[in-house]
């Protein structure tokens, strides 16, 4: 019988090499890592931070054991860069609504890209952007994602400890409502008639918005099997709300994630007021350089 014996003390393993990189984003999710003030020293003890422009000037071309990717693919150069980074990464973790859903900037996917550029910039020909802002997972395989705008520090710590322990991170795939009920938050939809996306939105934020008396606006994006169509029917019928008002609820930070995307397309919630929207989001990623 082949038996294995435990050594008296395990040798200290090399620390996993961690990188933090960004695409089109505001850097807020990266800052969540720096905001882990109590845990920061332990994090550095367990992980070797090789690339993190918000925190250190040292740079690395990889390889990475863990790479945190913030931001959406929004420029032509991003298309090659994300593929190259994936090639050098063992565990690729997308962080935040931009990386996981395309972000608020994905609202342009329903608009006229050229008209936007011409309307905002004096020299639109200098702007190198793609017609669509898209989530990282549309381009490469993603191993784990942390949702939200910004991400939740508790979920980040859970992911880090799970990486150290070697277990699957316990990120629940339930509705925000569950967290409201556990915390004793009175349902804003039932008690005030405020529209709330909590039912169709992935949990993880600790129900911040309902705790402050307003409806969830879905920044963690749709949860598994989100019945957005059912919620839409209820809001239109029982709430007596016009189509576009309901559509606008879904047209937020995670608008480009299905099934929110279909609701925005169907109900027309991405209107900018400039008459620049189209019914369908643009379908090509090809940008005009």
């Amino acid at each position: 019988m082949a038996t294995k014996s435990a050594p008296a003390s395990a040798p200290a393993a090399a620390r996993p090499r961690v990188g933090v990189v960004k695409f089109a984003s505001c850097d807020g999710c990266q800052l969540t890592l720096l905001d882990l003030e109590d845990e920061l020293l332990s994090v550095v003890e367990h992980f070797e931070i090789v690339d993190f422009p918000e925190a250190t000037s040292s740079r690395s071309a990889g390889p990475y054991d863990v790479l945190f990717v913030e931001g959406s693919v929004s420029e032509p150069a991003h298309l090659e860069r994300i593929v190259e980074l994936r090639r050098r990464t063992r565990h690729l973790v997308t962080i935040g609504a931009c990386a996981t859903a395309g972000g608020i900037q994905a609202l342009r996917n329903w608009g006229d890209h050229d008209a936007f550029r011409a309307g905002v910039y004096a020299h639109p020909e200098w702007i190198h952007s793609l017609a669509r802002s898209t989530p990282i997972a549309e381009h490469v395989t993603v191993d784990a994602e942390l949702r939200g705008c910004p991400i939740d520090p508790g979920q980040l710590v859970e992911l880090l400890t799970a990486l150290i322990t070697g277990r699957r991170p316990q990120l629940r795939d339930e509705s925000v409502c569950m967290e409201c009920k556990r915390r004793g938050v009175v349902c804003v939809m039932v008690s005030k008639g405020s529209p709330c996306l909590g039912q169709v939105t992935q949990t993880g934020c600790g129900a911040i918005c309902p705790r402050f008396g307003r409806g969830c606006y879905g920044c963690f994006g749709p949860r598994e099997q989100a019945n957005a169509a059912g919620l839409t029917r209820h809001l239109q019928m029982a709430g007596d709300r016009p189509r576009e008002e309901v559509g606008r609820l879904f047209a937020g930070f995670t608008a480009y994630s299905e099934p929110f995307r279909s609701m925005v397309t169907e109900l027309g919630g991405a209107r900018t007021g400039r008459g620049a929207t189209t019914a369908e989001p643009a379908t090509t990623t090809g940008g005009k350089a």
């Binding site: 845990e39 332990s42 994090v43 003890e45 367990h46 710590v157 859970e158 880090l160 400890t161 150290i164 322990t165 277990r167 316990q170 339930e174 509705s175 409502c177 569950m178 009920k181 556990r182 349902c187 909590g198 039912q199 169709v200 099997q225 989100a226 019945n227 059912g230 919620l231």
Partner: peptide
């Protein structure tokens, strides 16, 4: 049904639970 789970958590008899593990770093 949105399968949000509100009915079960508002229910005074529903007793299902789940275990989660937390480890320090």
């Amino acid at each position: 049904c949105i399968t949000c789970g509100n009915c079960t958590l508002a229910c005074p008899t529903c007793f299902c639970t789940t275990l989660t593990q937390t480890t320090d770093l």
